[in-house]
């Protein structure tokens, strides 16, 4: 039981990082990024490429991969999402993200085939025993990295000028612009940060579990579940939602059966949407309509 809870929390940390970027983009821009899972899976494949090509440790690879995620994400917002939102509606943006995610997944499948891959650094097979509980070193490292990343994001949003601009734009774009905030740059920045965190979570996921290109849908939906569970727009909400979802997933896997994991997760999503769409820590921003 204790072992299951520990595993659930460790898994939940990774889920939190995977969701925090989605949450930021949704909270600030009211855009559901259906390509979010693509950034996650893309990060995992980038880590794989750096590991097999340069023997670069995944944790070190986080730096270039997150930087790359930032650049791609910001450009994606500037040249694709922004124009789509201006031309059409949020639904048009939704469709564009969906369309592009199909393109990328198709590309990844052609390059890497749909076979299951994983990244296993040298310490992948170490584990530590504390009392009755076994902790895999790689999971612990991934969890700690996840905590550090989320804390860093929370600090960034709370203390820096850019963080304040992001929060102001999330509360009211009009008021923020009246105060001299360049909303377009804030949007690009937000998307960049969100994508960087998605790519970073992909690296962690690549370390602790196998992955395939087609899994991107699953990661997008997981991110959505985490956000709905915890609350939109805040790192704390993503953290809480991720940990709860991780627990729910592992408990189901152990006590009900592995085939029911996704069913239970999506039932939680549906139940939350109906009972409290704002999430547990719901400061719902304007997305809650």
């Amino acid at each position: 039981m204790l072992q299951t809870i520990v595993n659930g929390l460790l898994y939940g940390g990774t889920l939190s990082v995977a969701a925090v970027g989605f949450s930021l983009i949704f909270g600030v821009m009211n855009v559901i990024n259906l390509a979010h899972g693509v950034f996650v899976v893309g990060g995992a494949y980038a880590a794989l490429a750096l590991w097999t090509g340069l023997r670069l440790d995944p944790i070190l690879a986080l730096v270039p991969i997150m930087a790359g995620g930032f650049v791609v994400g910001a450009a994606y917002q500037r040249f694709v999402i922004g124009p789509a939102v201006r031309r059409g509606s949020p639904v048009a943006a939704l469709l564009v993200t969906f369309g592009l995610s199909l393109v990328v997944v198709n590309g990844l499948t052609i390059v890497y085939s749909s076979a299951v891959r994983n990244v296993s650094p040298a310490y992948a097979f170490f584990s530590v025993r504390i009392g009755d509980v076994t902790i895999d070193a790689v999971r612990a490292i991934a969890f700690v990295t996840a905590l550090v990343l989320i804390a860093a994001l929370a600090l960034f949003l709370r203390t820096t000028v850019w963080g304040r601009m992001i929060r102001a734009t999330a509360q009211s774009e009009l008021a923020a612009r009246l105060c001299g905030v360049d909303a377009r740059r804030v949007y690009a920045l937000t998307f960049g940060v969100g994508s960087a965190f998605a790519a970073g979570s992909g690296v962690l996921i690549g370390m602790i579990m196998p992955f395939t290109p087609a899994e991107e849908v699953q990661w997008t939906v997981y991110a959505f579940v985490v956000v709905v569970l915890g609350g939109v727009g805040s790192p704390a909400g993503a953290m809480l939602g991720g940990l709860l979802l991780g627990l729910a997933a592992t408990l189901t896997q152990t006590y009900v059966g592995p085939v029911y994991t996704n069913v239970v997760m999506f039932m939680i999503l549906l139940a939350m949407l109906l009972v409290r769409p704002n999430g547990i820590l719901g400061s719902a921003f304007r997305a809650s309509r």
């Binding site: 694709v80 369309g99 199909l102 393109v103 997944v105 198709n106």
Partner: peptide, 9 residues
């Protein structure tokens, strides 16, 4: 899939 995606965009 890629073609369908590009058509959507």
């Amino acid at each position: 899939l890629a073609i369908t995606g590009l058509i959507v965009v």
